[in-house]
């Protein structure tokens, strides 16, 4: 039997606007949007990184279970670190989200963790976005009640909050000399979040960008 296709939670809304596609991690992703402008990255650009594989784990034994796989976890709550190429987010005290970089196998090892009484697997279906550009902070100011200027990429800060009424996890991550913001939300809210953020970004002179532009920008 063939490997079943993964479908992005944003597939339906991308379908009408994509100019070109690319297959990433068994998921069809938008390489470039119709009418996409490089200028978006100079104001505020929104990209879809849902194709990255991810898995969660929570419970009192979660940190030890990840450590047993050689995965480094953040020492404090609401922070992120990298472990190998994977991004490890600590959501609160005892919950972790692991996201692979392309081609990484960390998620596979986490999802295959043996059953333990205090470790609970958390399958994920996230709409995973990235917000980049100097106007990203302004976009947050119109959509989120947290002051993102206080969220530091150098410290590895993340916040659990809401944007446009949707529960999200936001992490500030470095991208060259700049900071970009990764945003994860329940995939079933993904279309609404994407459309609303694009609408606000458009007011700010920005808009969506595909994975090609994101790659060029180092996001």
């Amino acid at each position: 039997m063939n490997t079943p296709a993964r479908v992005s939670p944003l597939m339906d809304i991308h379908a009408a606007r994509a100019a070109s596609w690319v297959e990433l991690e068994d998921m069809r992703s938008v390489a470039a949007f119709a009418g996409e402008s490089a200028a978006h990255l100079q104001t505020v650009a929104i990209g879809d990184l849902s194709h990255h594989r991810r898995f969660g784990v929570k419970g009192p034994g979660a940190a030890n279970a990840l450590a047993s796989l050689g995965i480094t976890t953040p020492a404090r709550a609401n922070a992120w670190v990298t472990s190998g190429d994977a991004l490890i987010l600590r959501l609160g005290l005892t919950e972790y989200l692991v996201e692979d970089a392309s081609g990484d196998a960390t998620v596979r090892s986490v999802s295959g963790l043996p059953t333990a009484p205090d470790v609970y697997p958390v399958p994920r279906f996230d709409a995973a976005l990235v917000l980049a550009g100097p106007q990203a902070i302004e976009l947050f100011r119109q959509t989120c009640a947290v002051d993102m200027t206080t969220v530091s990429a150098e410290r590895g800060d993340l916040v659990l909050t809401s944007m446009v009424g949707v529960g999200v996890t936001v992490a500030a991550v470095p991208s060259g000399s700049n900071t970009v913001y990764r945003v994860w939300c329940d995939g079933t809210y993904g279309a609404y979040l994407w459309e609303t953020l694009c609408e606000v970004a458009q007011d700010l002179g920005g808009g969506p960008v595909g994975t090609e532009a994101l790659l060029r920008a180092g996001c």
Partner: peptide, 17 residues
């Protein structure tokens, strides 16, 4: 203002449409 009314869509929304 700009209304924020979160909507959830099933992954099958496009199929239904």
């Amino acid at each position: 203002g700009r209304g924020f009314h979160p909507q959830r869509r099933s992954p099958l929304h496009g199929r239904h449409a």
